[in-house]
Design a binder for these strands. Sequence first.
DNA 1: AAAAGTCAGTTGTTTTTACAACAACAATTA
DNA 2: TAATTGTTGTTGTAAAAACAACTGACTTTT
Lengths: 223, 223
Amino acid sequence: MEKHFEIINQCPLFRGITDSDLSTLLKCLSASERRYVKGDIVFMTGEPVTSVGIVLSGGVHVVQEDFWGNRTILANVRPSGLFGEAHSCAGTEKLPISVIAVENSTVLLIDFKRIITSCPSACSFHTGLILNMLRIMAKKNVFLTQKMEHITRKSTREKLLSYLSAEAQERGTSKFEIPFNRQELADYLAVDRSAMSNELSKMQNEGLLSYERNRFNLKLEEN
Amino acid sequence: MEKHFEIINQCPLFRGITDSDLSTLLKCLSASERRYVKGDIVFMTGEPVTSVGIVLSGGVHVVQEDFWGNRTILANVRPSGLFGEAHSCAGTEKLPISVIAVENSTVLLIDFKRIITSCPSACSFHTGLILNMLRIMAKKNVFLTQKMEHITRKSTREKLLSYLSAEAQERGTSKFEIPFNRQELADYLAVDRSAMSNELSKMQNEGLLSYERNRFNLKLEEN
DNA sequence: AAAAGTCAGTTGTTTTTACAACAACAATTA
DNA sequence: TAATTGTTGTTGTAAAAACAACTGACTTTT
């Protein structure tokens, strides 16, 4: 497992924990390293999940399969990436998703109870780990809430304005750059790219805003 | 503050904590009770937030105001309801939302740092509190992720199928009831009610599913 | 029992969006 | 430099969605 220490350290769950402590901590957590070959199922839909996973090598997909068998990839997790934290913490009884190895992979599994239960030897790292976990989920929460805010708007225009407005406010200026190209923005807002481009054009004509590539400028009134 | 103990106890943050302990705990947390008159601002957009709030009486709105001043109500928090937990935990520097008293209200504010920092007297409740917080955020996380999964679909049909499919899988049966009426479902999926009703009709005609009021039955193939 | 209210489905119309195809331009690579 | 690839904007068309208005079934209130 030692050879993966670098990867593990990059995982936000272990932020602030030194290499020398890591070994003790992992033992204390009874973390277990598992190998999967391409196509293997790490977590299975419908089953309960009690562990969080960290990809050490290879990669896994978080996928969802609907009633009719249509499969959607929800996430692509790469080395040092975390998965299953929300469900194992929330105590989900039937996983609504599956986790599948997309190539030969190694994964570190940690029983969630172990993370939140102080060990008999009262190792001081649990607290740090729990706080890391808290922060990870809080950030994801904020992210999802913001995105939801944009996506729940009915029209493309409203989605765009909601998103651009939020960017402007976060930066505290009406001139700003966005971290997406058009296709990425369209995917983020769940709309068609060309329709979105079109809507941007219209808004520019109407004097609501101006832009060039990923530089935007929001305008109050028409001036 | 004692008169609000019942309300506080109903807050998921204090789950598992007895009334007799509550008093000690609140003191340890330096929880402060604040009064607001209708229209007062509890948290202000653009400012950092370091506390979580619990509504004791009255009620607050979490609102978002965009660049052009259009206001949206994101949440309506009633007594025993929690707000600000994700942002105060994530360390958001500029709050993207405001919290406003919709009537004369009392609110309990707790500094987030106090929650996550073990007090000198090593009161044992912090751990419980932190775990409650973890679980609250994890559940919200799961909820948001699932909803996002449905809403990011482009067409009304896809949104419906994604949602209904998830319900069926969660219950482990193709016949189930949903906890929404049509208008609520339409709001949840961010689509127009009549258009949604229409789409449901079409799908029933096509033999994909059948329904009556809020009882649904998903069907494999046409049979 | 009548009246009012709620809820779901239906229809027709208008508006919006997706989709497809292409042109202009920029950036990258050979 | 030429060729290739990627990105953005534009246009036309077809499909989908929103919107508005109305019906009928069922509930609750008076």
